[in-house]
C-alpha cells in the first residue's frame, strides 16, 4: 500500500477494526514513514479526545414523561379508547393528579346536587327520563371542568412544550369545547414551535372538522408548515373532510421539488380523493 492507501485505512486501524494482515502492513509502513506516522498520531489524538467527551446525563423528567405516556397508552388500550398505533401523551403525574382531583371534586359536587334535586322533587317523571337528565347534567359539569383545565393550560404562554401538549391533549377529550379552546388549538397549530404540539393540535381539530374556521386555518397553514410530519397530518385532515378548496395547495405541494417526497406523494393522492 502507498501512503494514500495507508491514510485511507488509518481510522479503522486506530479503532482496531482491520484484518490482522492489513494492520500488520500498516504498522510496518508507519515505522518507516514519518508523514504517515504524523497523520496517525494526530488522528489518533483527535479520536481519543472525541471519545473522551463526557457523557451527558438527561434529566429524570424524560423518564417520568415516558413512563407516564406508556401508562396512559396502556389505560387507553385497555379501555378501548385508542387504536394500537394511537396517540401518546406526555402527561406528568402531577398534572394527572391535578386534573383528576378537579374532575373528581366536580363529579362529587354534581352527584350531591343531583341527589338533592332528586330528593326535593316529586317523582313525576318516568325513571328513565330522570336518569338521562341527571347523566346529561353530570356530563355537562365534568365537561365544564375539563374545558377549564384545558383552557388554563393553553393560556399559559410561558408554559413548557410538555404543558402545552397537555393542553392540546386535554382539549381533544372535550365533548363541547368553547370557541376559546378551538381558537387556542388553531393558534397552537399555526404558531407553536413544537412539532408534537402542532401534530396533536391537528388531530384534536378532527372533532371540529365541520367548522369552516378550522378547515380554513389548516388549509392556510399547510403551505407554511415546515415539518413533513405535520404536513402529512394536515393533508390527511383536508382529504378526510373533502375540502375542495385545498386542491390548489395540494397541487402546489405535489409538484414542489422542495417538499418531502412523502408529502408530494400524499398531496397527489389527496387530490384524487377530493
Amino acid at each position: 500500500m502507498n501512503c494514500a492507501q495507508i491514510c485511507e485505512h488509518l481510522p479503522e486501524f486506530i479503532d482496531d477494526r482491520l484484518a490482522a494482515g492489513t494492520a500488520a502492513e500498516i504498522r510496518r509502513h508507519l515505522a518507516g514513514c514519518q508523514a504517515c506516522r504524523h497523520e496517525y498520531e494526530t488522528l489518533s489524538a483527535t479520536l481519543q479526545a472525541l471519545d473522551a467527551q463526557p457523557e451527558a446525563e438527561p434529566s429524570p423528567r424524560l423518564r417520568e414523561n415516558l413512563l407516564a405516556s406508556i401508562e396512559e397508552e396502556k389505560r387507553a388500550l385497555r379501555a378501548g379508547l385508542r387504536r394500537p398505533a394511537g396517540q401518546p401523551s406526555r402527561m406528568r403525574p402531577w398534572i394527572w393528579r391535578t386534573c383528576l382531583q378537579g374532575l373528581a371534586a366536580c363529579v362529587l359536587l354534581a352527584f350531591g346536587f343531583l341527589a338533592g334535586v332528586r330528593r326535593a322533587s316529586a317523582p313525576a317523571q318516568p325513571a328513565a327520563d330522570s336518569t338521562a337528565r341527571q347523566l346529561a347534567e353530570l356530563n355537562s359539569r365534568v365537561d365544564s371542568m375539563g374545558r377549564l383545565v384545558s383552557y388554563t393550560l393553553l393560556q399559559q404562554q410561558k408554559s413548557s412544550a410538555n404543558d402545552r401538549l397537555e393542553g392540546v391533549l386535554t382539549s381533544a377529550t372535550l365533548q363541547r369545547p368553547t370557541e376559546n379552546v378551538i381558537d387556542n388549538l388553531v393558534s397552537t397549530l399555526v404558531l407553536d414551535p413544537s412539532v408534537n404540539c402542532r401534530l396533536n393540535a391537528v388531530e384534536a381539530l378532527y372533532a371540529h372538522a365541520d367548522s369552516d374556521v378550522v378547515r380554513t386555518a389548516i388549509r392556510v397553514s399547510l403551505p407554511r408548515e415546515q415539518s413533513p410530519l405535520v404536513q402529512l397530518a394536515m393533508i390527511d385532515f383536508l382529504a378526510a373532510v373533502r375540502d375542495r378548496d385545498a386542491a390548489p395547495a395540494f397541487q402546489k405541494l405535489s409538484a414542489s421539488a422542495l417538499a418531502d417526497p412523502s408529502v408530494r406523494v400524499a398531496a397527489g393522492r389527496a387530490l384524487t380523493q377530493l
Binding site: 467527551q53 457523557e55 451527558a56 438527561p58 424524560l62 414523561n65 413544537s194 408534537n196
Partner: peptide, 27 residues
C-alpha cells in the same frame, strides 16, 4: 442523549429530541 448533545450543542434541544424519539416509537 449524549449523541444529540454533541450534535446540537444544546442540552434542552437534545432532551426534547430524545423525548420525541421515544414518543414516536410508542405512537
Amino acid at each position: 442523549f449524549g449523541y444529540l448533545v454533541k450534535l446540537t450543542g444544546d442540552r434542552t434541544m437534545a432532551e426534547d429530541i430524545v423525548q420525541t424519539v421515544f414518543q414516536r416509537m410508542l405512537k
